[in-house]
Amino acid sequence: MLRLVFDGGARVMVRPSGTEPKLKVYIDAAATEGSMRERRAAASEAVARLEAGMRELVA
């Protein structure tokens, strides 16, 4: 498994599938400042940016 941890705590984890010839990519992020709505929006934005970058790399 490859685990990348970014500033702010966002993570991308990449591992091979155990049953299929493909990679599995897991992305998570959190935010600690602002209201609940602002934190969710910031975390969702971070995940979207990381997902876009990972899609470029593995496509």
Rank of each mutant, 00 (worst) to 15 (best):
L57W: 09
V25Y: 06
E20Q: 11
E20D: 13
E56L: 06
L23K: 12
R15W: 09
G9C: 04
L2R: 12
A31T: 13
P21F: 10
A30I: 00
R55K: 14
S17M: 00
E38L: 08
E51L: 14
A29F: 11
V14H: 02
E51C: 05
V47E: 03
A31L: 06
R39E: 10
R3Q: 15
V58G: 05
V25P: 12
A43F: 08
P21N: 08
M54D: 02
T19L: 05
Y26R: 00
A31D: 08
S44K: 10
L57M: 03
E56S: 09
V12N: 12
M36P: 03
I27N: 00
E56G: 05
V14K: 07
A43Q: 00
E51N: 04
M36H: 10
S17Y: 01
R11S: 10
A43T: 07
A10L: 03
G18S: 09
G53M: 05
V47W: 04
E38P: 00
R15F: 06
V14C: 09
A30Y: 14
A42E: 09
A41Q: 15
E45L: 13
A41G: 02
V47S: 08
P16R: 15
S35W: 11
L4F: 13
R15K: 13
R40D: 11
G9L: 02
P16L: 13
A59W: 05
L57Q: 06
R37S: 13
M1Q: 12
L23W: 15
R3Y: 08
E56Y: 02
E38S: 07
R39S: 04
M13K: 09
D28V: 06
R3G: 03
R37K: 11
V47K: 09
P21M: 10
G9S: 11
V47Y: 02
A41R: 15
M36A: 15
V14A: 03
E20W: 13
L4W: 13
L57H: 05
S17N: 02
V25D: 03
R11H: 07
E20F: 14
E45A: 08
G34R: 07
E56H: 05
S35P: 01
A42G: 03
A48R: 12
R39Y: 08
R39W: 12
S17K: 12
A29E: 12
I27F: 06
D28F: 05
A59T: 08
D7H: 11
M13S: 08
A52V: 03
G8Q: 04
L50C: 06
M36G: 12
A30H: 13
A41W: 00
S44C: 02
L2I: 15
G9I: 09
A59F: 04
V58W: 03
V14F: 00
A43E: 02
R39A: 07
V14L: 09
A42I: 01
L23G: 04
D28M: 03
E33P: 00
M1F: 04
K24V: 13
G18M: 09
A29P: 01
E33C: 04
L57S: 03
A29K: 15
K22Q: 05
A59I: 02
G18V: 08
A48C: 11
V5Q: 15
M54G: 01
A31R: 07
A42K: 14
